[in-house]
Every structure is written in structure tokens, then in C-alpha cells.
Simulated scan of single mutants.
Amino acid sequence: MATTIGEGLDVEVRLPPHLQRYGGATTARLSGCSGPVVVALGGISADRFVCTGKDGGPGWWRGLVGAGCPIDPACARIVGLDFAADPTGVRAPSTVEQAEVVAAALDSLGLDAADLLLGASYGGMVGLAFAQHFPARIRRLAILCAPATPHPAATAMRELQRRTVAMGLALGSGAEALSIARGLAMLTYRTPEEFDARFAGGNAEDASLAVSAPGAYLRARGDSYLSVMSPERFLSLSASIDRHAVDPSAIPHPTLVIGARSDRLVPPHQLEALAGALPNCELHLLDSLYGHDSFLKETAMIAPLIAGFLA
């Protein structure tokens, strides 16, 4: 079933029978009418509104995908996707299974292959899995802030977040627990240097639960996260990250890998190892204050690299 919303076409994507445990269907969105096919995937909270938002404004990848950007619907057909997840939060799809959902989305849109898969963070992991397991359905690959396998420190932090959310659900406080987990995650997405530049440390009040300036920021970010993520969906997709594993040597496509030297979630040595194992790869490590979130915050630096790779 296809519906038109704003400047994009939404299409229902039926999941393959063996993936029905992650919901019967999800939704893909196609923006643009002609040109090369670009699949654009982001972190676990990203959705199909990559090019144009629900309100008709810019989508979530502002500065990189959208009108006037390097990936422009005037020149390309842009595919966004709502990731599949277990609505009960009990099971987590692997990134290979999520790649199957990408393939099903292309089928539903009547597209044989993607000229470029542009993936960041979790979307980059899915992109690597897609290139390995569906090599004939992709021509080029651009990966931002995503490794071949998760870093053990990142896995440990995500497990603590999931334990927090699971305890909150058991106590009837799933929303508050998810807000706390998102705040913890933000500490891994950003850098101490950014916090030092924005906030003062410490707290002068004697109340043990007094809110500090950085704490208020993390609470606000956590509470706003509730509008795009449920506790159960978070459990499923967070655990999916830790099921990720690919063999980079089996990915022959021309690949661009971009990361930040300040990224603590996907440290630069992981991207150097990924680039070294990919047979046909170009690597760029950026200096950024924003760590893992550089793929969202540093589009002015990233855009020329993407444009050059496409040229």
C-alpha cells in the first residue's frame, strides 16, 4: 500500500515470513522521481523521514540529505526506512536481518538496486551487512561512524542502558527509565570537551537529587527521546547493535568510511581496521568536538567528502 505525504511516497514493506517476530510490516519512503537510487539510514532513532520531515520541513539528516544538499531529491531517488524491531522488546534483529528488510523495501518500491547506500551509526552497520549479503543490489557504500563489530566498552554501556529500561518497565516506569538510558547514551555520543565548553561542573545545592546544568540538558534530551522511541523498541534495536558482525573482506564495492577522532563509541582504530580490511576503501577521520554525533553535527565537513566520492 502506497500513500503520498508531502514530497515523499510512503510504501508498506511486508517483512519476510521468518522475520514476522519483528512485526508484520514496516514503512519505507521514496523522495525524488528520477536519478540514482540512494538508501540513507541513520541511528536506531532515525526513521524514513530522512529527506523531508513529517511537518514538511527538513528531514533528520539536515545538511547532507534534502533540497540543496549533496543528496538532493531533485537529482536522486532517496529511500528512507523505519527499522524493523520487536514491538515487545524481547528479541533483537541482527543487522543481517535488518539488511533483509532493506532488500524488502527496495522490492516494495520496485527498485532493483541502490547506486549508493549511505549509512551512519546503526545504519552504517546495516549498510555493511547489506553490502556483504546482497552484493548485487548495491554499487557504492558510504559508512559513517560504524564498525565491523561493536567495541566491547560500547557493548557494556548499552547493556547497562537496557538493564535500566528493563527495570523501569518492570516497575511501571518505562518512560523515566528510557529517559535515563538516553542520557547515558548521550555521554557516549558526545565528548567531555563539548560538555566542558557548554556547562559548569558540580552542584552548589545540598539536595542529593538537585539537578545540575549538564544533568538538566541530559534530562531534556532523554525526555524528548520519548516522542520517537518506546522502551520496548529501544530494547530491541539497542540489542541489535550488539548482534552486528560483518566480514569486511567480503565487501568488494567502492566504499567511503568517515569517522571522528573524538568518537568514543566507535574509536578511530576500529575505523582504521575496517578500512584496512575493505578491498576498495577511502578513509577520512575528522577532528570534531561532537564525537559519535559528528555524522549529524559536522555535515559541512562531511558533505564535500560525499560529493567527491559520488563524483
Rank of each mutant, 00 (worst) to 15 (best):
E176D: 15
G201S: 14
V266N: 03
A220S: 09
S249W: 05
F195E: 11
A154Y: 04
T155Q: 12
L256H: 13
V165S: 11
Y189N: 06
P231N: 06
G172M: 09
L184D: 04
V266F: 02
E193D: 14
S236W: 10
A250Y: 10
E193H: 07
Y189K: 12
S236D: 06
A207P: 00
V228I: 09
H244S: 10
I180K: 09
P252S: 15
R264T: 01
R243P: 07
L235D: 11
P147K: 00
P248E: 12
L160C: 14
I251F: 14
A239N: 12
R158N: 03
G222T: 06
L187Y: 01
R233D: 01
T255W: 14
R198V: 04
A175R: 15
F195K: 04
S262L: 01
A156L: 11
G183Y: 01
A213R: 10
G215R: 07
L235T: 00
G172D: 13
P214D: 06
F195P: 00
V211R: 15
S173C: 12
D247Y: 04
T255G: 15
A260R: 05
L226S: 05
T255E: 15
D263A: 03
V211N: 10
R261C: 03
M186E: 13
Q161D: 02
A204W: 07
E176W: 07
H253F: 10
A154V: 04
R190C: 03
L187I: 01
P267Y: 02
S230Y: 05
Y225R: 06
Q161S: 08
N203E: 14
P150R: 00
R221T: 07
P248K: 15
H244W: 12
L265T: 02
D206Q: 04
S240C: 11
V228P: 00
M157E: 06
H244G: 12
A197W: 04
I241E: 15
P248Y: 13
G168W: 11
A207R: 06
L160G: 13
V246L: 11
T188V: 07
T164G: 08
S179W: 05
P192L: 14
N203W: 03
P248H: 14
S249C: 08
L184R: 03
P268K: 02
R182N: 04
A245M: 08
V165Y: 10
R182S: 02
G168C: 12
V266K: 00
V228Y: 01
D263H: 02
G201P: 08
S238H: 09
R243L: 15
S227K: 07
R198H: 08
R182M: 04
A166W: 08
A260E: 05
H253Q: 15
P214W: 07
P150L: 08
P267K: 00
R190L: 13
A170Y: 11
A185E: 02
A146G: 13
A216Y: 10
A210H: 07
E232C: 10
S179Y: 03
S224V: 02
G174A: 09
D263R: 01
A216R: 13
S179T: 12
A166H: 10
P147A: 01
P254D: 10
G215N: 06
S236N: 09
E232G: 03
A148E: 14
G215T: 02
L226F: 07
A170R: 11
V266M: 00
E159Q: 14
S240Q: 09
G215C: 05
E159L: 13
L271R: 10
S224G: 07
S227E: 10
